[in-house]
Amino acid sequence: MNHVINVQVENKPGVLARVASMFAGRGFNIHSLAVGPTADPEMSRMTIVVDGPEMEQIIKQLYKLVHTVKVTELSPGQGIEREIMMVRVNAEASKRAEILEAAAIFKAKTVDVGLSTLTFELAGDPAALGDFLELMRPYGITDMAKSGRIAISRDVKTNGKKGRLRSA
């Protein structure tokens, strides 16, 4: 089963290598990893999707790295997860209309048009990306790139006085 963890690390040279080396050295498997800045310039956030049952050890070993400040495991439904994907699909003239129609339903953006292919960009919930891929598969996927998941936790929905819902 995939688990999503958010790792807040000090923004220091080599911190990604430290995290990657720890995973490799301990035999933990990374499904995807995305890293980028946070609102605080001294910190970076890594969103790591891992499979495997050793979550407790993974989190503890991450904490052991001196530059790791906070590790949060996002249980399903607790986090907001997004991913971006670009996918190139065979699209001969006779199929183009139906492919574009399907893309429109998913709000996928057409980013390149070739003689016999269409390339879409789709960002959103990872499950939706998976669904779109399945839909495109029969036409023939010739190339695909995914960013890896990024995630943040959902904020509290009440402030103790009245319900305060946010869209997500």
């Binding site: 080599g14 290598a17 080396s21 720890m22």
Partner: peptide, 14 residues
């Protein structure tokens, strides 16, 4: 050295 010693140290610096 930094890379080679990383998994053999608690922490390291360049």
């Amino acid at each position: 050295t930094w890379g080679i010693s990383m998994p053999a140290t608690k922490h390291n610096y360049l």
